[in-house]
Design a protein around this nucleic acid. Sequence first.
DNA 1: CTGAAAGCGCTTACAG
DNA 2: CTGAAAGCGCTTACAG
Lengths: 381, 381
Amino acid sequence: MAAEQRTPPRGSGRGQRVTIADIARRAGVTSAAVSLAVNGRPGVSDATRERILEIARELRWEPSPAARALAGAPVLTVGMVLARPAEILGAEAFFGAFVAGLQEVLSREDYSLQMKIVETPEAEIETFRRWFSQRRVDGVVVVDLRLDDARIPALEELGLPALVVGGPGHHGSLPSVYVDDAHATRLLVDHLAELGHTRIARVAGDDVFLHTHQRDRTFAARCEELGLECLNQPAGFGASGAEVATAELLSREEPPSALLFDSDEMALAGCHVLEQAGLAVPADVAVASYEDSPLARGHRPPITAIGRSATEYGRVAADRLLEVIAARRERRETGGAGEPETRALIPELIVRGSTAPQLDGATGPSEEGPERPATRSSRTA
Amino acid sequence: MAAEQRTPPRGSGRGQRVTIADIARRAGVTSAAVSLAVNGRPGVSDATRERILEIARELRWEPSPAARALAGAPVLTVGMVLARPAEILGAEAFFGAFVAGLQEVLSREDYSLQMKIVETPEAEIETFRRWFSQRRVDGVVVVDLRLDDARIPALEELGLPALVVGGPGHHGSLPSVYVDDAHATRLLVDHLAELGHTRIARVAGDDVFLHTHQRDRTFAARCEELGLECLNQPAGFGASGAEVATAELLSREEPPSALLFDSDEMALAGCHVLEQAGLAVPADVAVASYEDSPLARGHRPPITAIGRSATEYGRVAADRLLEVIAARRERRETGGAGEPETRALIPELIVRGSTAPQLDGATGPSEEGPERPATRSSRTA
DNA sequence: CTGAAAGCGCTTACAG
DNA sequence: CTGAAAGCGCTTACAG
């Protein structure tokens, strides 16, 4: 490959890298002056600064992240460790959307995201320790918050800037961003109660996670407040667990008339069980999900769900983490004490066909729209 | 936070970092000897090496990536730039699964993945240039390959190790990994032909992408070989385009009896149009998709699709890129010329209910299984 | 096989 | 406001 039209400027560094020394030489100043100028710090006159910046542009100088990091500057990288198999992450709509949102904000601020997949929560903590002592990241985002999560005290002790995704009340002194699951639970239960359901079951996900516990608790509390009969059915992880749990609920003497699923994947699995049992949604059983995604929207009937853009969630998390990192840097200079801050995202309910009001008789639905298409498709075969 | 049980070893570096100088002092050797020892290079006796490694472990030494990078060693990072909005990436099942696969392999080899979201393909090339001149990455993975993709010559000129996801025949001198779309097309067309369909339409995705073109071409060629009538309907991007295209196909004088969609998202959108038109799948129209995902599996009837684990795709891509990076390093020493290598992933067809053989009459399907449940659910309301 | 030294490209005190 | 210097933690020739 011969270099064609534009020959890149050659510097004095290894591999013809352009360095601040090259700029300094051209500008007739020291490299320290260049450093101050390009970093927007006081210490050089405006005229000198302008001249230096001009030359830097001309030479197409790019700072060396390695040199900066070695000299103590931020490494412009945040880390995220995931203690789940790649296969499962890949199957989850949440993961991709969340990462995309994180990336969007981080990229804009010239930060990059470093991810690592490990086997166990312990390995996750070990990774934090290594990243910290290697100075590989300026901060980390903690996901999949658990009850009594060992990562929280570990991070507090390390002093590595961190943002916890999840909460509230279980993130120690670390700042957190979370979706208000108690609120979401009330929205769902109230909606089903308004439709006249009095026996509601919740098919609950993996209870090592904090949000599952919070849903469990609020579900029971809200049902009691409204005088509803509530069944909390733990279903472990994923679709197969949801199938078993749904089947179990249906075999009860008095099966519930509404099912609440912890994820859209679980909701769909549950719907299939209902279908095979000859039960129609929503005519026989109403179905709703804590998670919205194309899966929930694409199902027939489309599934009522808690809307929460995972992409937006990722954006907010990134924003907050960058704030924390910036604050840390300030504090190092001013010596002020930081305080844990928390931000709650308010979920909203998206009502769809799977919880449509039960119209009796065969008169058909009164309002026919794209959000609530007929569940009975006429056959012209 | 007082440090409790185990006090971390303090070194001489800034912030009490343990450095190779500390190890050298303890071992009574120079730091150069330590460097050789910990990197497994010849130059120190076995006995000395053992002693050095022992002390390194004891002191819990961690190498500084910044220092290593600055001294010319690999930075252990690979990059990926995406020229698509976060919102769209998030909605795509492929993205998350692919990244998870990449991560799995990279994490294992102690590499990290750096991602960046940009607006345009030009900005993508600019990012490559910057990463290269900053020595921020050891290599990059190129996705969303286009026809006459400007990134290919740019990367060739830069000399940055790269792996192209997509192909074949359009990745210049760069190595590539791709799914054989021609093969996939033949699998789909042949399957539909065997079922007796003679008029097949393909609802095609965004044709800026190379794989769309390859499918277009093979689709036409295979249909001609089999004497089928084929309709190639460009649908632009995403669900709404697919809806319009499907509606258009149905309004033809002789509408097709089978529809082939470029993605599962499009297939579902198409199914909804069929449903609203009162057409049953597969009884009236058969449907198949080039992409498999929970969306395709969860639909009723489940959709026949090309199976290709995006996670596995990511793993293979990461493996290949690491090979390319390693080869580059070797070559720099030996001076041998590298040659572009290509790896094709063979797709397979997963037959599901959406293309079930058309049984005439109301006798119902003969084999009733979870993969092909009744489309008519009996109502017990 | 080992030791002493230079250098990677930057930042940050510390004198003038 | 500016200049000269030390230092970040490592690797890599280059002498012994």
